[in-house]
Amino acid sequence: MISALWVMVGISLLLGAVLGYSAIKFKVEGNPLVEKIDAVLPQTQCGQCGFPGCKPYAEAIAKGEADINKCPPGGEEGIHKLAELLGVEFKPFGEGAGPRAKAVAFIDEQTCIGCTLCLQACPVDAIAGAAKQMHTIIASECTGCELCLAPCPVDCISMQPIEENIGNWKWQYPAIPIVQVNPR
């Protein structure tokens, strides 16, 4: 009985010492998870998640402060990737928060007054122009974030869906007529 007690005391002294030592000695700083999450996000910097850009959203997810279903441009696939990365369950988009068709912003140059407000709103510097000069969207850089729509005082910016053409056309997933699973 007494020996059992001594054994317990001895073991716990030793283990406690080891644990207390390593808790200080091997403390890990920083969070590599943020980088991993950021790599999954589509980098539209659109702020639709409620955070000012992709990186802040990634940080919020890593801290557990934000849900994984707040990024419409990433699509459901993005949520799946995040779910897998974080080891949590997939969570569908909320009502009306789903992704829209891919589009680029387009400035109606007849109406544009060259106020530069959209330039300041664009998170990726995809609008070219200077004060009092008409602006143009560099479509190849435009992420379709729509952040330029609101600031425009003359509402000359619209989103133009990217149409399918021979260049961006994709092969369809082959339809297998045989598997007729009734939609449940």
């Binding site: 009985m1 059992a4 007690l5 317990m8 005391v9 073991i11 716990s12 002294l13 030793l14 283990l15 406690g16 010492a17 644990l19 207390g20 030592y21 808790a23 200080i24 000695k25």
Partner: peptide, 27 residues
């Protein structure tokens, strides 16, 4: 000093709990 203190503190804590546990088991 910080490391030493933490080491000692943790060890004593653990000893406390194990003595308690041993007592319950024994009874």
């Amino acid at each position: 000093r910080r490391i030493a203190r933490s080491t000692l503190q943790t060890a004593v804590n653990l000893v406390f709990f194990s003595v308690l546990a041993t007592a319950i088991l024994a009874s």
